[in-house]
Design a protein around this nucleic acid. Sequence first.
DNA 1: AGCCATAATACTCACTTTGAGTATAAAAGG
DNA 2: CCTTTTATACTCAAAGTGAGTATTATGGCT
Lengths: 276, 276
Amino acid sequence: MTIRSGDALPSGPFELGHRSLQAGLREWVRDQTGHPVGYLEQLYTFADRGRTGENIDGRTISISYLGLVREQPAPGAGRPEWHGWYEYFPWEDHRKGRPDILADIANRLQDWADTEPARHEYRQRRIDFAFGLHGAAWNEDLALQRYELMYEAGLVTEAGYPSERGFGRSMFADHRRILATGIARLRAKIKYRPVVFELMPEKFTLLQLQRTVEALAGLTLHKPNFRRLIDQQELIEETGETTAETGGRPAKLFRYRHAILEERALSGSKFPLSRN
Amino acid sequence: MTIRSGDALPSGPFELGHRSLQAGLREWVRDQTGHPVGYLEQLYTFADRGRTGENIDGRTISISYLGLVREQPAPGAGRPEWHGWYEYFPWEDHRKGRPDILADIANRLQDWADTEPARHEYRQRRIDFAFGLHGAAWNEDLALQRYELMYEAGLVTEAGYPSERGFGRSMFADHRRILATGIARLRAKIKYRPVVFELMPEKFTLLQLQRTVEALAGLTLHKPNFRRLIDQQELIEETGETTAETGGRPAKLFRYRHAILEERALSGSKFPLSRN
DNA sequence: AGCCATAATACTCACTTTGAGTATAAAAGG
DNA sequence: CCTTTTATACTCAAAGTGAGTATTATGGCT
């Protein structure tokens, strides 16, 4: 959810009037977009000198957050601007197979690695690992590493250069890097916390849920196994209703079981415990 | 690793002279403790009003970091002060079974939940979940949630009250909360990233490695299965040497395989992928 | 010299969890 | 009534885990 026609993320100054950072943030977002934020989580704080190119004296401290907002018929007076994030990161969408653009990117990165013999091996390993080349598998969680590599290699531009100059659409200042941070965090998080439901309507079908997860992960999932996974977790329950709007056999509608307590640990210890 | 005899964490002001936050931080820590920090990761940024009780106008922004330091014979002029973190959080150490202190804590929390009928059920669920009561299992990752609950219920004190007033040793300002945040983060992290090795000497035995993980997690692990796990990951290799210093049959010494690239993903996708 | 406590290391085995499919059911549209 | 489309239900082998038992080296005691 953007402002300025997709050129920037909602943002604002920290003011003393607010109880807390989070409270202030919720207020700006509502003002700037007309939508209330649900889930909110701190991402990263930047305070490095000359970070944006605007504020060279280095006094700016930016505290970024990941927020999840349900895409609903605008409740307030706002006019939110929704943009799919693959507009900014076309190489991250693997739902229709490996995007062609990755071949170009890999070539340009290869050139960059080759230009400096001293760091060649190190760069090569980072590239192969992040982009799933030379035997490594694609890992959707590495969105930030990929962006940072491309940034180092000069393949992406920030701060409103014409988009022809690099891959994907750019954003104001370092907003695109912040977005990459958020994507990486969210992709990692949906694997062990039920945050997807923050993005779902009250009632939904299993395929809608799967499509949402796929959109976030940029991958296609195996339907039967996805379903098995979901009902092992016991996070959802049938409403009893069905919908025929999906075409084909009518699908059961489900709802999220809030009773389960937001903070529930799904992972389990993952350590080889001893009993004692 | 503390300063002020265990009353505070290393900390300092952000100065413009530093290239970055991290660079500044490394400098303070070295100055204050005489030890260089290895791994460093941002934890959380606090900017809430009246957070410490010192700086009531709310202008203070604190950016906290998790750092890992090898416990070595002090290389510089410093005199680092090592304190086991269970001094501050005695209820977090389950290596010798469930600590007795948890019974007291549970009682006090129960009283707190009972005092307010309106929020009773919500509090009850949080308590049971965080402390592994009424059927829930103990989850070592919830160290921060536990501290926050105890803080809300008034069972822990900050900012130098005599330690008799609460459970565990307290620290300056909100340093103990920051420590709880770090513990929680580290406990979660060692499960999917090989950060433990930042704390190990160059050469170590498998049991030493296990004891380190156990100290961090506050749990005892199943020896044969821990070993199996470790060599599945292929993170370490034999040095060829053995040591008899451990008592009993001499143990092989191992070293961490740095070649494996720090950022390596161990988890694997964890999604039910479809091939295409 | 021989035994025993202590670790280290090596196997075993049932049980669960996954990856990858196939099979059947219920609609809409021609 | 047949075909297309989506939903839902099973199956089965392979891999991974939890929980143990068995064997091998040491140093220290008697």
